[in-house]
């Protein structure tokens, strides 16, 4: 399988910071794969992808797209990669249809093809009713869908998406994963995205990279990585956010959100641990076999 992106020893220091935002990162993205990046806030994921689309200059190391270094030739990345930034701000004062049409045309489509592309994207992203609405007047979720559609406009062979499901309601999150899966299957689009939505992303991710404190701590197929933790179980605890429960010694949870912790526990220790758990202090608890989110917790927490 052809290599689309090759990242070699990439290190990034921001001015006046002593620890690197990215530290000696190396990996490859192959043609036609869906690659997901997981990691806590501040782990360096956005810094990494901004260097991949040439919006940020690496301190050292090299990013190569289709065999050509991205630094020094912004047109090369722009011609092949559709990028969706983390913040889904309005696109100028353009209407939704205008933004899609101009983006597709500027990316090389003929005017007639760009109009067809606009209509196809409006249908694909279920935004037909928003065609003439100004992007400044869209809701946060609608803007996110527009930025996704804009990233794809012009049938870009590579997509880099920074938190594509952020701010989206469950129904639209499902739409995002379905559409990404569909274009990957039908067009062979290579897709790299950052997400905190590990459980839903598991449906489409083919390979995953997990980042912690600027380092890429694990890369591989979820199934392969899970083997490292298959002797563990996932314990989820739900409680009133202002009254966290007392936990037995040795149980170190990771907070997903206030009032919702998860922890990985050894399979053989599960029943003893549950006996010592203060069930009175919990609203609910659940025990599962490991998921992609547990991989994330295992490597990143």
């Amino acid at each position: 399988m052809d290599v689309v992106y090759a990242i070699e020893n990439l290190t990034k220091f921001y001015p006046k910071q002593t620890s690197p935002a990215n530290n000696n990162i190396s990996f490859e993205i192959r043609q036609g794969e869906i690659f997901g990046f997981l990691g806590d806030n501040g782990a360096g994921k956005t810094t990494l992808v901004r260097q991949m689309v040439n919006l940020l200059r690496p301190t050292s190391g090299c990013v190569t797209l289709l065999g050509k270094p991205v630094v020094g030739d912004p047109q090369h990345v722009a011609a092949h990669v559709g990028y969706m930034p983390q913040m889904a701000h309005a696109l100028n004062n353009m209407a939704v249809g205008e933004a899609l049409y101009f983006t597709a045309h500027l990316r090389g489509m003929s005017r007639a093809d760009a109009l067809r592309e606009r209509d196809a994207l409006l249908e694909l992203w279920q935004m037909g009713a928003l065609r003439d609405k100004y992007s400044t007047r869209l809701s946060g979720g609608e803007r996110r869908l527009l930025r996704l559609a804009v990233a794809m406009a012009g049938r870009m062979p590579v997509l880099i998406l920074d938190e594509p499901t952020n701010e989206l309601a469950p129904q639209r999150r499902r739409l995002v994963w379905d559409v990404l899966s569909q274009i990957n299957r039908e067009r062979g689009t290579t897709i790299l995205f950052i997400t905190h939505d590990a459980i839903e992303a598991e449906k489409v991710i083919q390979r995953v990279g997990i980042m912690r404190a600027g380092e890429l701590v694990a890369v591989g197929r979820p199934g392969d990585l899970k083997r490292h933790i298959d002797q563990k179980l996932r314990l989820e605890l739900f409680f009133a956010p202002d009254a966290p429960p007392q936990l037995p010694a040795g149980l170190t949870p990771h907070e997903l959100q206030p009032g919702h912790w998860i922890a990985l526990i050894e399979r053989r220790e599960a029943s003893a641990l549950l006996e010592r758990l203060d069930l009175e202090g919990l609203d609910d608890f659940r025990l599962y076999s490991p998921t992609l989110e547990d991989l994330y917790v295992h490597y990143a927490a």
């Binding site: 689309v53 040439n54 919006l55 912004p74 047109q75 990345v77 722009a78 011609a79 990669v81 559709g82 990028y83 930034p85 913040m87 701000h89 696109l91 100028n92 983006t103 500027l106 990316r107 090389g108 804009v150």
Partner: peptide, 10 residues
């Protein structure tokens, strides 16, 4: 972030 949009167009 509008300049990012322009900077990532060809």
């Amino acid at each position: 972030g509008g300049l990012d949009y322009v900077a990532t167009l060809p």
